[in-house]
């Protein structure tokens, strides 16, 4: 059989398979249409970062300006602080990733079912509280006059701290309130992985005289590492995105110096300022994509160097 014939036969087989499943493509049609309109059309529209967008003319008619919008951002006094704030806040958010692992390892040791499920239930309840409410709670709890910390400080004869008004405390409050909210929820995955570890390993270790801490160190922890690294790298990809809602709520004129990150700046330039600058805002947004990608590569690299596990 000639090559031509083979390819033709293959092609007709392919066509047969497609035709046989035509109803599956009908099911897929609506989701694909949605994907095109709401996800890929904006990617096409992102070209306004390289144009000077004029609302009256539309995207395609607006003149090309090359990298002018990017240069403008590089030369802006906002450039360095915004990038630094974004990177620092992201890294800080990432380095607390072992906490849910510790929680899972610790819960895994508990023998009483009741105690274990109570602790689990309580620690992951805060996950379901909305960001607005969490930040509202922070304001109330840390209120310099009527908050819990103020009451406590008064009882101890100290002057009440004003953490929400203190720019130096912004990053700590942001990250540790995240830990408070999500450690229990994030521990779920690790607990599930722990149940897949072969009990024979523990049995052998006990026979060899290993204590519980040693078994955690040499059996449980290595068992969690691959999943932990994958999750770490994946959350790196998302860390720049998720931050917006909470950072924006926690911003005040006092802490803007440390709390202005790329996403909040993009929003303000694009939709809040008196002169809306769509092109400039889009350019900064694209830059965020690049920062995110670099961050991802850095974390993946670190994960591979340290643990020999990585996503790619």
């Amino acid at each position: 059989m000639s090559l031509y014939k083979i390819t033709r036969e293959r092609r007709s087989q392919l066509w047969l398979r497609i035709r046989r499943n035509w109803q599956l493509y009908v099911l897929l049609a609506l989701p694909l249409l949605w994907l095109l309109v709401f996800r890929y059309a904006p990617m096409y529209g992102a070209q306004i970062a390289f144009r000077q967008y004029m609302p009256a003319i539309g995207i395609e008619g607006s003149p090309w300006v090359g990298l002018a919008n990017f240069e403008r951002f590089f030369n802006s006094p906002k450039f360095a602080p915004v990038i630094i704030n974004t990177v620092v806040l992201s890294f800080y958010s990432l380095i607390v990733f072992p906490i849910p692992i510790i929680l899972a390892l610790s819960l895994n040791q508990v023998r009483s079912r009741l105690f274990r499920s109570s602790v689990q239930m309580i620690t992951y309840a805060p996950h379901f509280i909305s960001t607005v409410v969490i930040v509202g709670m922070l304001y109330q709890f840390l209120h310099p006059r009527v908050g819990f910390t103020a009451t406590l400080a008064n009882m101890l004869g100290q002057s009440p701290p004003n953490w929400m008004g203190n720019p130096g405390a912004f990053r700590h409050i942001f990250v540790w309130s995240n830990v408070w909210q999500d450690m229990g929820f994030n521990a779920i995955i690790y607990l599930a992985v722990l149940t897949t570890i072969d009990p024979a390993l523990h049995e052998a270790a006990v026979v060899d005289g290993a204590n519980r801490l040693q078994r955690i160190r040499y059996i449980d922890l290595p068992g969690l590492l691959p999943v932990a690294m994958v999750l770490l790298v994946l959350s790196t990809g998302r860390v720049l995105e998720i931050a917006f809602e909470k950072v924006y709520l926690m911003q005040s004129p006092l802490n803007l110096g440390v709390s202005e990150v790329i996403n909040t700046y993009v929003y303000k330039v694009g939709l809040l300022s008196p002169i809306l600058d769509f092109s400039y805002s889009t350019a900064i947004g694209l830059l965020k994509g690049i920062v995110g990608l670099l961050l991802l590569i850095a974390v993946n690299h670190a994960a591979r160097r340290l643990t020999e596990n990585s996503v790619w």
């Binding site: 694909l32 994907l35 059309a41 990617m43 096409y44 998302r238 996403n263």
Partner: peptide, 28 residues
Amino acid sequence: DLVGRRVIIIAFIFTMLFSGGLIPTYLV
């Protein structure tokens, strides 16, 4: 047995890594 499923899945996953951004989505 669905022809093209890999490509379509990748097209969805790609939106996790990269998006048009706030303003282009707003414009749509």
